[in-house]
């Protein structure tokens, strides 16, 4: 059984003119020690996916359907009190703007300690403090910063603190939502290497949400490509690089600048992402696809297996035709 099973996760946002279908039917499995990348352009529902997995969607957002099964328990069905016990203890998140994720009024050590004391009430004060210091060392920060206030720290340091915080209650799954966006390239590389090492060492599942193709292909072993709130392709990194199937995945990778071949034409994807408020029931990539045919306009294709470890939502592949 997989560590984390996400099934048909669907989240809408209420607007004045109808529902914005920001996340539609997200499904995937995550094994222990697996690193899954979720990529897509901005507004494709990546972050919504992250927060939905934590059942942390707030009004006007609403999780309409789906299951997030961790350890045989469905997070979506839990009430707030049950969920609070699971959050951070079993599944933690490094949010998009780690810069602002530290409360300016409290010492950073205290903020990590708070989580530990909450989830391990039996732990003594000394043990808990020792654990925080250990975590700080683990992410490469001197333990003296325990007593530092967030405004004294650099961006990279805050990022590491947040990673330490995410690790503090020994979760089984960590979701990193654009955690390194905006950092210096060098620091970004260091932090990602650190995350990967910890994930492999501890055998935890890591979900990396990003728009950075190079980074995701470098660090993840499986990749899900999202478009307009849906997963359009889910496969190994190898397959994504060598054998992409969905027209969007292909377009995405050909829009990269090739460092070895500057003469190669960079193809951009024409058109814009469709509006997600009350969308039509056609393939969401229809307007921008260069290989569309009449079938695509009739019904939105669902994600089907075309081979082991390769799933695509496109009528061109497999026996998706009804």
């Amino acid at each position: 059984m997989a560590l984390l099973e996400v099934r048909n996760l669907t989240t809408y946002y209420e607007t004045k003119i109808g529902y914005n279908e920001a996340l539609q039917g997200l499904s995937f499995d995550l094994e222990a020690g697996g690193i899954l990348g979720l990529i897509g352009e901005s507004g494709c529902g990546k972050s919504t996916a992250g927060f939905s997995m934590m059942n942390m969607i707030e009004y006007p957002g609403k999780i309409m359907d789906g299951e997030v099964i961790l350890d045989g328990k469905d997070l979506i069905k839990m009430d707030r009190n049950e969920l609070r016990k699971v959050l951070w203890k079993d599944i933690a998140m490094i949010p998009q703007s780690a810069m602002n994720a530290l409360n300016p009024a409290y010492k950073v050590g205290k903020q990590i300690l708070e989580a530990i004391k909450l989830h391990f009430p039996e732990m003594s004060q000394e043990e808990a403090v020792a654990k925080v210091e250990h975590l700080l060392n683990l992410v490469g920060i001197d333990a003296k910063w325990y007593h530092g206030y967030p405004h004294k720290l650099s961006g990279g340091m805050k990022q590491r603190i947040i990673i330490a915080m995410a690790l503090s209650c020994d979760p089984k799954v960590i979701i990193s939502d654009e955690a390194t966006t905006g950092l210096d390239v060098l620091i970004e590389a260091q932090i990602l290497a650190l995350l990967k090492k910890i994930a492999l060492d501890r055998g935890l599942g890591l979900i990396i949400i990003s728009h950075d193709l190079n980074m995701v292909t470098a660090i993840c072993n499986r990749i899900g490509i999202m478009y307009a709130g849906m997963l359009v392709e889910l496969t190994t990194t190898e397959n994504v690089l060598r054998n992409p199937k969905h027209p969007y995945t292909r377009a995405l990778f050909s829009s990269q600048i090739d460092s070895k071949d500057f003469d190669k034409k960079v193809t951009s994807v024409d058109g814009v992402v469709p509006k997600l408020v009350n969308p039509e029931d056609k393939c969401r990539f229809y307007d921008r696809c260069n290989r569309k045919f009449e079938m695509c306009e009739r019904k939105c294709p669902s994600l089907i297996s075309i081979s082991d470890n390769h799933r695509v939502a496109c009528y061109l592949e497999g026996d998706n035709h009804e």
Binding site: M56, L87, W88, P95, A101, L102, P104, I162, M165
Partner: peptide, 9 residues
């Protein structure tokens, strides 16, 4: 964001 973080904790 730190409020969201506190809730997530």
């Amino acid at each position: 964001d730190y409020i969201l973080m506190a809730k997530m904790k």
